[in-house]
Design a protein around this nucleic acid. Structure first.
Lengths: 199, 199
DNA sequence: GACAGTACGTACCGGTCAGTAACATTGTCA
DNA sequence: TGACAATGTTACTGACCGGTACGTACTGTC
Protein backbone atom coordinates (compact mmCIF):
# COMPACT_ATOMS: atom_id res chain seq x y z
CA UNK A 1 0.00 0.00 0.00
CA UNK A 2 2.83 2.40 -0.80
CA UNK A 3 1.95 5.70 -2.35
CA UNK A 4 1.56 4.29 -5.84
CA UNK A 5 4.17 5.21 -8.47
CA UNK A 6 1.89 6.55 -11.17
CA UNK A 7 -0.99 7.81 -9.06
CA UNK A 8 -3.29 5.60 -11.10
CA UNK A 9 -5.56 4.70 -8.22
CA UNK A 10 -7.95 7.50 -7.50
CA UNK A 11 -9.05 6.87 -3.96
CA UNK A 12 -7.85 4.59 -1.17
CA UNK A 13 -4.55 6.40 -0.89
CA UNK A 14 -5.03 6.31 2.86
CA UNK A 15 -1.93 7.51 4.63
CA UNK A 16 -0.55 5.35 7.38
CA UNK A 17 -1.94 7.49 10.19
CA UNK A 18 -5.54 7.18 8.99
CA UNK A 19 -5.30 3.42 8.77
CA UNK A 20 -3.87 3.12 12.23
CA UNK A 21 -6.57 5.42 13.60
CA UNK A 22 -9.33 3.43 11.95
CA UNK A 23 -7.88 0.19 13.22
CA UNK A 24 -7.77 1.38 16.79
CA UNK A 25 -11.20 2.98 16.47
CA UNK A 26 -12.64 -0.28 15.20
CA UNK A 27 -11.30 -2.17 18.18
CA UNK A 28 -12.25 0.37 20.85
CA UNK A 29 -15.63 1.38 19.41
CA UNK A 30 -16.67 -2.23 19.09
CA UNK A 31 -15.47 -3.42 22.48
CA UNK A 32 -16.28 -0.43 24.65
CA UNK A 33 -18.87 1.51 22.69
CA UNK A 34 -18.56 4.69 20.67
CA UNK A 35 -19.65 7.18 23.29
CA UNK A 36 -17.42 5.52 25.86
CA UNK A 37 -14.27 6.12 23.84
CA UNK A 38 -12.74 9.56 23.46
CA UNK A 39 -10.68 10.66 20.51
CA UNK A 40 -7.73 11.24 22.82
CA UNK A 41 -7.65 7.57 23.71
CA UNK A 42 -7.86 6.61 20.04
CA UNK A 43 -4.97 8.77 18.93
CA UNK A 44 -2.95 7.70 21.95
CA UNK A 45 -3.30 4.00 21.15
CA UNK A 46 -2.75 4.67 17.47
CA UNK A 47 0.47 6.50 18.26
CA UNK A 48 -0.60 9.60 16.37
CA UNK A 49 -1.89 13.02 17.31
CA UNK A 50 -5.32 14.53 17.21
CA UNK A 51 -4.83 16.76 14.18
CA UNK A 52 -3.91 13.64 12.22
CA UNK A 53 -7.29 12.21 13.08
CA UNK A 54 -9.13 15.32 12.01
CA UNK A 55 -7.23 15.54 8.74
CA UNK A 56 -8.54 12.14 7.71
CA UNK A 57 -11.97 12.25 9.35
CA UNK A 58 -14.15 15.33 9.58
CA UNK A 59 -15.47 14.44 13.03
CA UNK A 60 -15.68 11.69 15.60
CA UNK A 61 -19.15 10.86 14.33
CA UNK A 62 -17.79 10.35 10.83
CA UNK A 63 -14.94 8.26 12.16
CA UNK A 64 -17.58 6.09 13.83
CA UNK A 65 -19.49 5.90 10.55
CA UNK A 66 -16.30 4.83 8.78
CA UNK A 67 -15.76 2.10 11.32
CA UNK A 68 -19.32 0.92 10.81
CA UNK A 69 -19.01 0.89 7.03
CA UNK A 70 -16.00 -1.37 7.40
CA UNK A 71 -17.98 -3.46 9.85
CA UNK A 72 -20.84 -3.74 7.42
CA UNK A 73 -18.56 -4.87 4.61
CA UNK A 74 -17.22 -7.64 6.82
CA UNK A 75 -20.77 -8.57 7.73
CA UNK A 76 -21.80 -9.07 4.12
CA UNK A 77 -18.70 -11.12 3.52
CA UNK A 78 -19.78 -13.53 6.23
CA UNK A 79 -23.34 -13.52 4.99
CA UNK A 80 -22.39 -14.13 1.37
CA UNK A 81 -19.98 -16.86 2.41
CA UNK A 82 -22.90 -18.75 3.95
CA UNK A 83 -24.99 -18.14 0.84
CA UNK A 84 -22.30 -19.33 -1.54
CA UNK A 85 -21.67 -22.42 0.55
CA UNK A 86 -25.14 -23.71 -0.29
CA UNK A 87 -26.05 -22.64 -3.82
CA UNK A 88 -29.73 -22.79 -4.55
CA UNK A 89 -30.61 -23.88 -1.02
CA UNK A 90 -31.81 -20.80 0.89
CA UNK A 91 -32.79 -22.82 3.91
CA UNK A 92 -29.28 -24.18 4.33
CA UNK A 93 -27.89 -20.75 3.59
CA UNK A 94 -29.83 -19.24 6.48
CA UNK A 95 -28.98 -22.09 8.82
CA UNK A 96 -25.31 -21.89 7.92
CA UNK A 97 -25.24 -18.18 8.60
CA UNK A 98 -27.09 -18.51 11.89
CA UNK A 99 -24.93 -21.36 13.03
CA UNK A 100 -21.91 -19.13 12.76
CA UNK A 101 -23.73 -16.26 14.44
CA UNK A 102 -24.68 -18.58 17.28
CA UNK A 103 -21.13 -19.79 17.64
CA UNK A 104 -19.63 -16.34 17.73
CA UNK A 105 -22.33 -14.98 20.04
CA UNK A 106 -21.43 -17.30 22.90
CA UNK A 107 -17.70 -16.64 22.82
CA UNK A 108 -16.14 -14.78 25.72
CA UNK A 109 -15.91 -11.06 25.13
CA UNK A 110 -18.54 -11.10 22.39
CA UNK A 111 -20.02 -7.66 22.03
CA UNK A 112 -22.86 -8.17 19.56
CA UNK A 113 -23.33 -6.39 16.25
CA UNK A 114 -21.43 -3.14 15.99
CA UNK A 115 -24.17 -1.60 13.90
CA UNK A 116 -26.95 -2.60 16.25
CA UNK A 117 -24.99 -1.32 19.21
CA UNK A 118 -24.34 1.98 17.48
CA UNK A 119 -28.05 2.42 16.76
CA UNK A 120 -28.75 1.86 20.45
CA UNK A 121 -26.12 4.40 21.39
CA UNK A 122 -27.39 6.98 18.91
CA UNK A 123 -31.18 7.05 18.80
CA UNK A 124 -31.18 10.44 17.15
CA UNK A 125 -32.57 10.09 13.61
CA UNK A 126 -30.08 10.92 10.91
CA UNK A 127 -26.96 10.40 12.96
CA UNK A 128 -24.23 9.21 10.57
CA UNK A 129 -23.40 6.19 12.72
CA UNK A 130 -27.04 5.23 13.01
CA UNK A 131 -27.69 5.47 9.28
CA UNK A 132 -25.16 2.76 8.47
CA UNK A 133 -26.96 0.33 10.74
CA UNK A 134 -30.43 1.26 9.54
CA UNK A 135 -29.49 0.70 5.93
CA UNK A 136 -27.81 -2.58 6.72
CA UNK A 137 -30.79 -3.92 8.63
CA UNK A 138 -33.20 -2.83 5.93
CA UNK A 139 -31.20 -4.65 3.29
CA UNK A 140 -30.82 -7.70 5.49
CA UNK A 141 -34.56 -7.77 6.02
CA UNK A 142 -35.12 -7.58 2.28
CA UNK A 143 -32.78 -10.47 1.63
CA UNK A 144 -34.17 -12.66 4.40
CA UNK A 145 -37.69 -12.14 3.12
CA UNK A 146 -36.55 -13.00 -0.38
CA UNK A 147 -34.88 -16.14 0.86
CA UNK A 148 -38.01 -17.09 2.79
CA UNK A 149 -40.00 -16.75 -0.41
CA UNK A 150 -37.45 -18.84 -2.24
CA UNK A 151 -37.86 -21.53 0.43
CA UNK A 152 -41.54 -21.65 -0.32
CA UNK A 153 -42.77 -20.18 2.95
CA UNK A 154 -46.52 -19.77 3.34
CA UNK A 155 -45.94 -16.20 4.52
CA UNK A 156 -42.44 -15.19 3.39
CA UNK A 157 -42.51 -11.75 4.97
CA UNK A 158 -43.42 -13.16 8.35
CA UNK A 159 -40.74 -15.82 8.19
CA UNK A 160 -38.12 -13.38 6.96
CA UNK A 161 -38.97 -11.02 9.80
CA UNK A 162 -38.92 -13.89 12.28
CA UNK A 163 -35.43 -14.83 11.18
CA UNK A 164 -34.33 -11.23 11.54
CA UNK A 165 -35.74 -11.11 15.06
CA UNK A 166 -33.83 -14.28 15.96
CA UNK A 167 -30.62 -12.82 14.56
CA UNK A 168 -30.94 -9.55 16.45
CA UNK A 169 -31.89 -11.48 19.54
CA UNK A 170 -28.73 -13.55 19.21
CA UNK A 171 -26.59 -10.42 18.89
CA UNK A 172 -28.04 -8.93 22.04
CA UNK A 173 -28.30 -12.10 24.10
CA UNK A 174 -24.76 -12.99 23.20
CA UNK A 175 -23.38 -9.91 24.89
CA UNK A 176 -25.86 -10.09 27.75
CA UNK A 177 -25.39 -13.71 28.75
CA UNK A 178 -21.96 -14.60 27.44
CA UNK A 179 -21.07 -18.28 27.15
CA UNK A 180 -24.01 -20.55 27.88
CA UNK A 181 -26.53 -17.96 26.75
CA UNK A 182 -29.63 -18.49 24.61
CA UNK A 183 -27.84 -17.39 21.44
CA UNK A 184 -26.44 -20.91 21.17
CA UNK A 185 -29.94 -22.06 20.25
CA UNK A 186 -30.50 -19.57 17.45
CA UNK A 187 -29.91 -21.94 14.54
CA UNK A 188 -32.03 -24.69 16.06
CA UNK A 189 -34.89 -22.30 16.60
CA UNK A 190 -34.53 -20.88 13.10
CA UNK A 191 -34.76 -24.38 11.71
CA UNK A 192 -37.90 -25.11 13.71
CA UNK A 193 -39.41 -21.82 12.60
CA UNK A 194 -38.62 -22.48 8.96
CA UNK A 195 -40.05 -25.99 9.19
CA UNK A 196 -43.25 -24.60 10.63
CA UNK A 197 -43.47 -21.89 7.99
CA UNK A 198 -43.27 -23.97 4.83
CA UNK A 199 -46.42 -24.54 2.88
CA UNK B 1 -47.53 9.79 49.81
CA UNK B 2 -47.36 12.41 52.56
CA UNK B 3 -44.64 12.03 55.12
CA UNK B 4 -46.59 9.48 57.14
CA UNK B 5 -48.06 10.55 60.47
CA UNK B 6 -46.56 7.92 62.71
CA UNK B 7 -43.43 7.15 60.77
CA UNK B 8 -44.52 3.55 60.61
CA UNK B 9 -43.21 2.91 57.12
CA UNK B 10 -39.51 2.38 57.21
CA UNK B 11 -38.42 3.16 53.67
CA UNK B 12 -40.09 4.93 50.74
CA UNK B 13 -40.05 8.26 52.48
CA UNK B 14 -38.73 9.72 49.23
CA UNK B 15 -38.66 13.48 49.39
CA UNK B 16 -40.10 15.33 46.48
CA UNK B 17 -36.75 16.24 44.93
CA UNK B 18 -35.60 12.64 44.60
CA UNK B 19 -38.86 11.65 42.95
CA UNK B 20 -38.68 14.47 40.47
CA UNK B 21 -35.07 13.63 39.68
CA UNK B 22 -35.87 9.98 39.17
CA UNK B 23 -38.84 10.86 36.99
CA UNK B 24 -36.77 13.06 34.71
CA UNK B 25 -33.93 10.55 34.68
CA UNK B 26 -36.31 7.80 33.65
CA UNK B 27 -37.58 9.83 30.72
CA UNK B 28 -34.20 11.09 29.51
CA UNK B 29 -32.22 7.91 30.13
CA UNK B 30 -34.78 5.86 28.28
CA UNK B 31 -35.28 8.16 25.33
CA UNK B 32 -31.75 9.41 24.76
CA UNK B 33 -29.54 6.87 26.52
CA UNK B 34 -27.70 7.06 29.80
CA UNK B 35 -24.32 8.17 28.53
CA UNK B 36 -25.93 10.80 26.34
CA UNK B 37 -27.59 12.58 29.26
CA UNK B 38 -25.62 14.67 31.74
CA UNK B 39 -26.59 15.21 35.33
CA UNK B 40 -26.83 18.95 34.69
CA UNK B 41 -29.59 18.38 32.19
CA UNK B 42 -31.42 16.12 34.60
CA UNK B 43 -31.40 18.58 37.49
CA UNK B 44 -32.32 21.41 35.14
CA UNK B 45 -35.41 19.64 33.86
CA UNK B 46 -36.31 18.44 37.34
CA UNK B 47 -36.14 22.00 38.63
CA UNK B 48 -33.70 21.07 41.35
CA UNK B 49 -29.99 21.55 41.93
CA UNK B 50 -27.09 19.23 41.66
CA UNK B 51 -26.47 18.80 45.38
CA UNK B 52 -30.06 17.59 45.72
CA UNK B 53 -29.32 14.85 43.23
CA UNK B 54 -26.19 13.75 45.05
CA UNK B 55 -27.98 13.78 48.41
CA UNK B 56 -30.42 11.17 47.15
CA UNK B 57 -28.17 9.19 44.79
CA UNK B 58 -24.52 8.41 45.43
CA UNK B 59 -23.55 8.73 41.76
CA UNK B 60 -24.89 8.98 38.25
CA UNK B 61 -24.33 5.27 37.81
CA UNK B 62 -26.47 4.53 40.85
CA UNK B 63 -29.15 6.91 39.60
CA UNK B 64 -29.15 4.93 36.37
CA UNK B 65 -29.42 1.70 38.33
CA UNK B 66 -32.37 3.13 40.26
CA UNK B 67 -34.09 4.05 37.02
CA UNK B 68 -33.53 0.52 35.75
CA UNK B 69 -34.87 -1.08 38.90
CA UNK B 70 -38.06 0.92 38.43
CA UNK B 71 -38.08 -0.09 34.80
CA UNK B 72 -37.71 -3.72 35.74
CA UNK B 73 -40.59 -3.56 38.20
CA UNK B 74 -42.82 -2.16 35.45
CA UNK B 75 -41.62 -4.91 33.14
CA UNK B 76 -42.68 -7.64 35.51
CA UNK B 77 -46.03 -5.96 35.98
CA UNK B 78 -46.66 -6.24 32.26
CA UNK B 79 -45.35 -9.77 32.16
CA UNK B 80 -47.42 -10.95 35.10
CA UNK B 81 -50.50 -9.24 33.68
CA UNK B 82 -50.18 -11.42 30.58
CA UNK B 83 -49.67 -14.49 32.75
CA UNK B 84 -52.64 -13.77 34.96
CA UNK B 85 -54.84 -13.12 31.95
CA UNK B 86 -54.54 -16.76 30.90
CA UNK B 87 -54.32 -18.93 34.02
CA UNK B 88 -52.93 -22.36 33.39
CA UNK B 89 -52.33 -21.67 29.70
CA UNK B 90 -48.63 -20.84 29.28
CA UNK B 91 -48.88 -20.75 25.52
CA UNK B 92 -51.51 -18.04 25.61
CA UNK B 93 -49.58 -16.28 28.34
CA UNK B 94 -46.53 -16.03 26.11
CA UNK B 95 -48.53 -15.00 23.08
CA UNK B 96 -50.39 -12.37 25.06
CA UNK B 97 -47.16 -10.90 26.35
CA UNK B 98 -45.51 -10.92 22.94
CA UNK B 99 -48.53 -9.40 21.28
CA UNK B 100 -48.19 -6.40 23.55
CA UNK B 101 -44.45 -6.25 23.00
CA UNK B 102 -45.02 -6.31 19.25
CA UNK B 103 -47.60 -3.55 19.48
CA UNK B 104 -45.41 -1.29 21.56
CA UNK B 105 -42.31 -1.99 19.50
CA UNK B 106 -43.76 -0.52 16.32
CA UNK B 107 -44.98 2.70 17.88
CA UNK B 108 -43.29 5.94 16.92
CA UNK B 109 -40.50 6.89 19.28
CA UNK B 110 -40.18 3.38 20.66
CA UNK B 111 -36.75 2.94 22.19
CA UNK B 112 -36.61 -0.72 23.06
CA UNK B 113 -35.96 -2.22 26.48
CA UNK B 114 -34.25 0.17 28.87
CA UNK B 115 -32.34 -2.67 30.48
CA UNK B 116 -31.12 -4.11 27.20
CA UNK B 117 -30.05 -0.67 26.04
CA UNK B 118 -28.18 -0.03 29.26
CA UNK B 119 -26.30 -3.31 28.90
CA UNK B 120 -25.26 -2.25 25.40
CA UNK B 121 -24.12 1.12 26.70
CA UNK B 122 -22.18 -0.39 29.58
CA UNK B 123 -20.37 -3.57 28.51
CA UNK B 124 -18.08 -3.40 31.52
CA UNK B 125 -18.83 -6.38 33.79
CA UNK B 126 -20.19 -5.40 37.17
CA UNK B 127 -21.43 -1.98 36.22
CA UNK B 128 -24.46 -1.25 38.44
CA UNK B 129 -26.66 -0.37 35.48
CA UNK B 130 -25.63 -3.52 33.64
CA UNK B 131 -26.29 -5.80 36.59
CA UNK B 132 -29.97 -4.90 36.71
CA UNK B 133 -30.41 -5.97 33.11
CA UNK B 134 -28.38 -9.12 33.45
CA UNK B 135 -30.41 -10.30 36.42
CA UNK B 136 -33.66 -9.46 34.70
CA UNK B 137 -32.77 -11.37 31.56
CA UNK B 138 -31.57 -14.36 33.52
CA UNK B 139 -34.83 -14.52 35.42
CA UNK B 140 -36.85 -14.02 32.24
CA UNK B 141 -34.98 -16.86 30.61
CA UNK B 142 -35.73 -19.09 33.58
CA UNK B 143 -39.43 -18.31 33.44
CA UNK B 144 -39.69 -18.74 29.66
CA UNK B 145 -38.00 -22.12 29.85
CA UNK B 146 -40.35 -23.14 32.65
CA UNK B 147 -43.34 -22.04 30.60
CA UNK B 148 -42.02 -23.95 27.61
CA UNK B 149 -41.79 -27.05 29.75
CA UNK B 150 -45.31 -26.45 31.01
CA UNK B 151 -46.50 -26.27 27.41
CA UNK B 152 -45.07 -29.70 26.80
CA UNK B 153 -42.28 -28.70 24.46
CA UNK B 154 -40.05 -31.46 23.17
CA UNK B 155 -37.01 -29.38 24.15
CA UNK B 156 -38.19 -26.76 26.66
CA UNK B 157 -34.83 -25.06 27.04
CA UNK B 158 -34.49 -24.54 23.30
CA UNK B 159 -38.01 -23.20 22.97
CA UNK B 160 -37.61 -20.94 25.99
CA UNK B 161 -34.39 -19.57 24.56
CA UNK B 162 -36.00 -19.14 21.16
CA UNK B 163 -38.76 -17.07 22.69
CA UNK B 164 -36.21 -14.96 24.51
CA UNK B 165 -34.34 -14.36 21.25
CA UNK B 166 -37.56 -13.27 19.57
CA UNK B 167 -38.32 -10.88 22.43
CA UNK B 168 -34.90 -9.28 22.39
CA UNK B 169 -35.06 -9.11 18.62
CA UNK B 170 -38.35 -7.26 18.88
CA UNK B 171 -36.89 -4.76 21.34
CA UNK B 172 -34.01 -3.98 19.05
CA UNK B 173 -35.84 -4.10 15.74
CA UNK B 174 -38.52 -1.87 17.15
CA UNK B 175 -36.13 0.97 17.70
CA UNK B 176 -34.19 0.27 14.52
CA UNK B 177 -37.09 0.12 12.08
CA UNK B 178 -39.84 2.04 13.79
CA UNK B 179 -43.39 1.57 12.50
CA UNK B 180 -43.63 -1.14 9.85
CA UNK B 181 -40.68 -3.03 11.28
CA UNK B 182 -40.32 -6.77 11.78
CA UNK B 183 -41.24 -6.53 15.46
CA UNK B 184 -44.89 -6.53 14.40
CA UNK B 185 -44.48 -10.21 13.48
CA UNK B 186 -43.02 -11.31 16.81
CA UNK B 187 -46.19 -12.92 18.21
CA UNK B 188 -46.98 -14.71 14.95
CA UNK B 189 -43.48 -16.14 14.80
CA UNK B 190 -43.57 -17.13 18.44
CA UNK B 191 -46.79 -19.00 17.79
CA UNK B 192 -45.28 -20.84 14.84
CA UNK B 193 -42.20 -21.66 16.87
CA UNK B 194 -44.26 -22.99 19.75
CA UNK B 195 -46.39 -25.07 17.42
CA UNK B 196 -43.27 -26.59 15.90
CA UNK B 197 -41.76 -27.28 19.32
CA UNK B 198 -44.55 -29.27 20.94
CA UNK B 199 -44.14 -33.01 21.27
C1' DG C 1 19.67 23.62 -3.98
C1' DA C 2 15.19 25.99 -4.21
C1' DC C 3 10.62 24.78 -4.08
C1' DA C 4 6.10 22.56 -3.36
C1' DG C 5 3.26 19.45 -1.24
C1' DT C 6 2.32 16.33 2.11
C1' DA C 7 2.30 14.21 6.67
C1' DC C 8 2.69 15.13 11.13
C1' DG C 9 3.36 17.31 15.99
C1' DT C 10 2.95 21.11 19.79
C1' DA C 11 0.05 23.61 22.18
C1' DC C 12 -4.11 25.25 22.90
C1' DC C 13 -9.38 26.47 22.67
C1' DG C 14 -13.99 26.85 25.05
C1' DG C 15 -17.18 23.81 26.85
C1' DT C 16 -18.90 20.05 29.49
C1' DC C 17 -18.26 16.09 32.45
C1' DA C 18 -19.32 14.09 37.28
C1' DG C 19 -18.95 15.44 41.77
C1' DT C 20 -18.32 18.57 46.14
C1' DA C 21 -17.78 22.27 49.90
C1' DA C 22 -19.89 25.77 52.56
C1' DC C 23 -23.66 28.11 53.74
C1' DA C 24 -28.50 30.00 53.48
C1' DT C 25 -33.39 29.09 53.38
C1' DT C 26 -37.62 26.81 53.94
C1' DG C 27 -41.17 23.79 55.89
C1' DT C 28 -42.80 20.70 59.48
C1' DC C 29 -43.67 18.98 63.73
C1' DA C 30 -43.25 19.13 68.73
C1' DT D 1 -40.35 28.76 69.91
C1' DG D 2 -37.08 25.64 68.84
C1' DA D 3 -35.16 21.72 66.53
C1' DC D 4 -34.44 19.25 62.56
C1' DA D 5 -34.61 17.67 58.05
C1' DA D 6 -35.00 18.81 53.19
C1' DT D 7 -33.79 21.76 49.78
C1' DG D 8 -31.68 25.72 47.49
C1' DT D 9 -27.58 28.88 46.32
C1' DT D 10 -23.17 29.72 44.77
C1' DA D 11 -18.99 28.57 43.52
C1' DC D 12 -15.70 25.45 42.66
C1' DT D 13 -12.65 21.22 41.28
C1' DG D 14 -9.88 18.44 38.05
C1' DA D 15 -10.50 15.75 34.27
C1' DC D 16 -12.02 15.14 29.91
C1' DC D 17 -14.72 16.39 25.71
C1' DG D 18 -14.42 17.30 20.51
C1' DG D 19 -11.97 20.30 17.70
C1' DT D 20 -8.29 23.67 15.76
C1' DA D 21 -4.49 27.39 14.74
C1' DC D 22 -0.06 27.11 13.64
C1' DG D 23 4.58 25.52 13.08
C1' DT D 24 7.78 21.76 11.30
C1' DA D 25 10.00 17.70 9.25
C1' DC D 26 10.21 14.84 5.33
C1' DT D 27 10.01 13.78 0.30
C1' DG D 28 10.30 14.11 -4.53
C1' DT D 29 10.94 17.37 -8.65
C1' DC D 30 13.07 20.57 -11.47
Amino acid sequence: MEKSDTMDQISEIKPRAAERILGVARKLFYLEGIRAVGVDEIVRQAGVTKPSLYRSFPSKDELAASYLREYEAAFWERFDAAVEAHPGDPRQQVIAFLSRVGERAVMVGYRGCGMTNAAVEYPEPGHPARLVGENNKRELRRRLRAMAAEMGAADPDTLGDGLLLLIEGAYISGQLFGPGGPAAAVARNADLLIEASLK
